[in-house]
Amino acid sequence: MGPIETLWGVIVLVFVIIALVRGYNKELGVTVLLLIVLFLELQFGDMVEARLKSDILPTLIRAFGGDPDRAVEVQNFLLLLIFQGLLIVVIFATYAGRTFSFPGSPPRGIEGTFFNVLVGLVNGYLFTGTLWYYLHKYDYPFLKRWGLFDPTLLTDRAKRMLEYVPPALFHDHPEFLAAFAGILVILSVRK
């Protein structure tokens, strides 16, 4: 199996291809929603996680006959499901359902293609970077146990890349994400 960053790279490439096909006016809507989800997760994530860990998850694990102190991996897995799940649901909804797209059509030629690729890259980076961040934060729950992934085999490049994923860069200032999403929304309704 190849390095995990290759997998993320392929997913980013898929986002670029989708952006080229759909046009970046539709993709900017996805960008805005990704920025908002990321802002919510970073702004309220620690609070939600603390509440879940102290109260809700232990109760849930006990209800299924488990020992919360020994079921750290299960807790991590459930937290991962919550944070990644929210992102995946939003992405699925934006692509599958009625999309929040920007009015107007992209410019033609190289300029339009350039923007399509750029927005596709940004969306791919926001999506895969966030998935990877939470996967790493919660120590790849069950993937390790089932032998599907060994985090000790992360390449040096992957370790460096983890410092530059969106949640790592904006952890201390998630308000920048919200502000930028706000500016994009204002631009979308200016016409």
Partner: peptide, 13 residues
Amino acid sequence: IALLLLWAAWELR
């Protein structure tokens, strides 16, 4: 990148 995205949004017509 943020500036480019803003320009991209501005260029829609």
